[in-house]
Simulated scan of single mutants.
Amino acid sequence: MKEHFSYDQRLGISIPNLEMEWAHNSEETQEAILFHWEKIRGSIPDRIAELENTINQKQAQLSNENNFKKSCDLNSEIAELASIINDLWLWYRANQIMADKMHQ
Rank of each mutant, 00 (worst) to 15 (best):
M1T: 09
M1A: 15
K2T: 04
H4F: 15
Y7H: 11
Q9C: 04
Q9D: 10
Q9L: 05
Q9W: 03
R10V: 07
G12V: 01
S14F: 05
N17A: 13
N17K: 12
N17I: 06
N17C: 08
E19N: 13
W22A: 01
W22R: 06
W22L: 02
A23Y: 08
H24C: 13
H24P: 01
E27H: 08
E27C: 00
E27T: 05
E28G: 10
E28T: 11
E28N: 10
T29D: 09
A32Q: 12
A32F: 05
I33A: 01
L34G: 05
W37S: 00
W37L: 13
E38G: 04
E38N: 11
R41G: 03
R41L: 05
G42W: 02
P45Y: 00
D46K: 03
R47P: 02
I48G: 00
I48Q: 04
A49L: 03
L51I: 14
N53V: 02
N53R: 10
T54K: 10
I55Y: 00
N56K: 09
N56P: 01
K58Q: 13
Q59D: 08
A60T: 07
A60V: 01
Q61C: 08
L62T: 08
S63L: 09
S63P: 08
S63H: 11
N64E: 12
N64C: 05
N66G: 07
N67I: 02
F68R: 13
D73L: 14
L74K: 07
L74P: 09
S76Y: 09
E77S: 15
E77R: 06
I78A: 00
I78H: 05
I78V: 04
A79L: 10
L81W: 02
A82R: 14
A82W: 07
S83T: 10
I84Y: 03
I84W: 07
I84M: 04
N86K: 15
N86P: 02
D87G: 01
L88Y: 04
W89A: 02
W89C: 09
W89L: 14
L90S: 09
L90C: 01
Q96D: 15
M98N: 10
M98A: 10
A99T: 12
D100E: 15
D100A: 15
M102R: 15
H103K: 15
Q104R: 12
